[in-house]
Amino acid sequence: MTESAKQLLLEIKNSGHTPIYVRISRLNPVISKDGLEFNYGGKKIELDGGIVRNLGFISSTEQLMKRFDSLKGLESNGITLINSPDSMFIARDKFNSLMKLKMAKIPVPDTTVVEDPFEVMRLVNEWKDVVIKPVIGSLGLGSVRVSDPDVAFRVAKAILSVNQPVYVQKYINKPERDIRVFVVGTTVLGSIYRVNRSSWKTNVAQGSLTQVLLPNEELQEISLKVVKALKLDYAGIDIVEDEDGSYKVIEVNAAPLWKGFYEATHINPAKYIVEHLIRKIKK
């Protein structure tokens, strides 16, 4: 269990409600003569609402469908979930989420997803410097920066050999940092710089230092447009500054961790997330 999950459980308890930690792999929807029920570890479980943190480790499409169906079943039974399964699913898919942001006129880097290593070579020749990422992933794990077409070809071949598409994003020459903005509901809780002078990766999990940043009007506007476009209740939004000073949204995390954010801002998102959930349940 992550520290963020522990803080959420504590906030639920402090608000006068009973917290339950549920592993999605053990949550089973049951169609019975009485309708749709749910059991957890062999026992019937009833919930008023829930905060979806992740879908667990997934090794097959069928496993993903079962877990997604379980969440959709909870939602169809009137249980309030944040983030909603549909929004969670979109945000988890990096390319789909960027397509929706682009359609909402939110600035994003040039990005594609392909299944041909020669196409990856061509893109490196065109874009010069790219990042190849897992389509689904977090913490910067598995991301590779490439500027050599031959190296890109080898990386693409390795990814394609395990039947995964290749997600390619034009590298933005950022100033040794990126920006994480944290939004709950229609409120920007705050933002931080994530600074790494020894690596192009600026995830806190990759060793970046954090500095508090007072978000300007443009950052707030972009971030609120992001959560609206993806229909998210809360999110961690990763934004980079381009060489011309403009902003681009790199990706959106629908179940962000906040250790670095809390250390820099002393704002605990758990309190605001739980309050937001309780308000939605009461509506």
Score class of each variant (00 low, 15 high):
residue 11 E to C: 08
residue 31 I to S: 15
residue 142 G to P: 01
residue 96 N to L: 09
residue 32 S to Q: 14
residue 9 L to K: 04
residue 6 K to R: 13
residue 99 M to S: 08
residue 57 F to G: 12
residue 14 N to K: 11
residue 14 N to D: 09
residue 18 T to D: 15
residue 244 D to Q: 01
residue 189 L to K: 07
residue 277 L to V: 04
residue 206 Q to K: 15
residue 117 P to Q: 10
residue 55 L to F: 11
residue 50 G to L: 10
residue 106 I to R: 02
residue 137 G to Y: 06
residue 21 Y to E: 13
residue 95 F to K: 01
residue 1 M to Q: 03
residue 187 T to K: 15
residue 223 S to Y: 06
residue 173 N to A: 10
residue 50 G to E: 08
residue 228 K to S: 12
residue 71 L to E: 09
residue 34 D to Y: 13
residue 15 S to W: 10
residue 110 D to C: 04
residue 95 F to V: 00
residue 281 I to A: 02
residue 149 P to W: 11
residue 56 G to D: 05
residue 192 I to H: 14
residue 28 N to F: 10
residue 244 D to V: 01
residue 258 W to C: 04
residue 113 V to S: 09
residue 158 A to G: 06
residue 81 L to F: 01
residue 70 S to Y: 03
residue 191 S to Y: 06
residue 169 Q to R: 04
residue 15 S to V: 07
residue 224 L to Y: 04
residue 177 R to K: 15
residue 216 N to A: 01
residue 276 H to G: 04
residue 77 N to G: 08
residue 230 L to W: 06
residue 108 V to H: 03
residue 231 K to T: 04
residue 106 I to V: 12
residue 278 I to R: 01
residue 93 D to H: 05
residue 207 G to M: 12
residue 92 R to L: 08
residue 198 S to Q: 14
residue 261 F to E: 03
residue 180 R to S: 08
residue 247 Y to L: 03
residue 69 D to I: 13
residue 207 G to H: 09
residue 270 A to E: 01
residue 20 I to V: 14
residue 161 S to N: 12
residue 256 P to H: 04
residue 72 K to E: 10
residue 210 T to S: 15
residue 147 S to M: 12
residue 51 I to K: 08
residue 151 V to G: 00
residue 34 D to E: 15
residue 219 L to I: 12
residue 86 D to C: 04
residue 143 S to I: 07
residue 89 F to N: 00
residue 66 K to L: 15
residue 73 G to I: 12
residue 21 Y to G: 09
residue 241 E to C: 05
residue 86 D to S: 07
residue 10 L to I: 09
residue 128 K to R: 13
residue 267 I to W: 00
residue 237 I to M: 04
residue 41 G to T: 07
residue 47 L to D: 13
residue 212 V to S: 11
residue 114 V to F: 06
residue 244 D to H: 03
residue 233 D to G: 08
residue 213 L to P: 09
residue 173 N to D: 14
residue 267 I to V: 02
residue 264 A to F: 07
residue 38 F to R: 10
residue 156 A to L: 07
residue 120 V to C: 10
